[in-house]
């Protein structure tokens, strides 16, 4: 515990991206991204399909390495040490274990003491409203329950930053509301939220600030209310015009 406390004193955030680019086979997917993400605010990443939103998230999380520029955390994550950030994907990736087992497995990878895992997992399940399902096989849960389990698993790791890549894209409105409530709770517990979404209503409900991407470039980085009512760029205005009729 003492070691964790020391690590916590040097927070990971803010995260700075300096001239970050990523290309595959000479084809640039993302280029010249400069921004800084700070603790406390909920960041929503918006933009049309193919704008590079998911790539940006993966570059931040370290699943991809930038081909140009630099992704820098203020605090350091030691190689081999438990990660201080987590990610939830569009399609939840669950293992052939029980609901509880999926979380204790992740805690094991994070180096949490065996005796502590079960308590932490049960507490995370309770917070995500899944306590009753703890012994069910994870892969036969409904889509909404699976995504809530993925969120509970991420939450149990007590990350400083949580990345979410369109977590409700495949879910119905009821399940979407439940997921949003859990994300709200995770934020309230002190975790920085970085959320990619296509749903402007969700962006308004869950976001404090917006990163707007278009064709691999960061076009705007503003407060959510400002972005939705008076976008600066023509690209953002066109995007909002295209998306709004659906709400």
């Amino acid at each position: 515990m003492a070691e964790i406390a020391t690590e916590r004193r040097a927070p990971l955030l803010p995260l700075s991206l300096t001239d970050v680019g990523w290309s595959v086979g000479g084809q640039p997917i993302l280029a010249g991204v400069n921004c800084s993400l700070v603790a406390g605010t909920r960041t929503v990443v918006l933009g049309p399909n193919g704008a590079g939103k998911s790539v940006l998230l993966r570059l931040c999380h370290g699943l991809l390495q930038p081909t140009q520029g630099e992704v820098r955390w203020s605090g350091t994550e030691r190689a081999g040490a438990p990660r201080r950030q987590a990610m939830v994907f569009q399609r939840p990736v669950l293992f052939r274990r029980s609901v509880l087992g999926n979380i204790t497995f992740a805690l094991g990878l994070a180096g949490v003491d065996r005796r502590e895992r079960r308590d932490r997992a049960l507490s995370a399940l309770g917070r995500a409203g899944l306590a009753a399902l703890r012994d069910r096989p994870a892969r036969v849960l409904s889509g909404g329950e699976q995504q809530r389990l993925a969120l509970a698993r991420a939450w149990s790791l007590e990350p400083e930053v949580l990345f979410l890549d369109e977590p409700t894209a495949n879910l119905d409105p009821g399940a979407t509301r439940e997921i949003e409530a859990v994300i709200e709770a995770i934020h309230a517990a002190g975790t920085k939220i970085v959320l990619v979404t296509h749903n402007l209503g969700q962006a308004r409900r869950l976001g404090d600030e917006v990163l707007f991407l278009d064709r691999g470039r960061l076009i705007e980085h503003t407060a959510i209310d400002r972005f939705l009512t008076q976008p600066v760029s023509a690209e953002a205005a066109a995007y909002l015009k295209g998306e709004l009729p659906w709400h």
Binding site: R58, H61, L63, P82, R83, A86, M87, F89, V93, F95, R96, R97, F105, A106, L109, A110, L157
Partner: peptide
């Protein structure tokens, strides 16, 4: 299907291999 999730959780090649062997038991 699982490599991004496993890497996100901090699993190296050995831990990933063992986890998938168990998953595919």
């Amino acid at each position: 299907e699982t490599n991004e999730q496993l890497r996100s959780l901090g699993a190296g090649p050995l831990a990933s291999a063992l986890a998938l062997l168990f998953d595919l038991r």
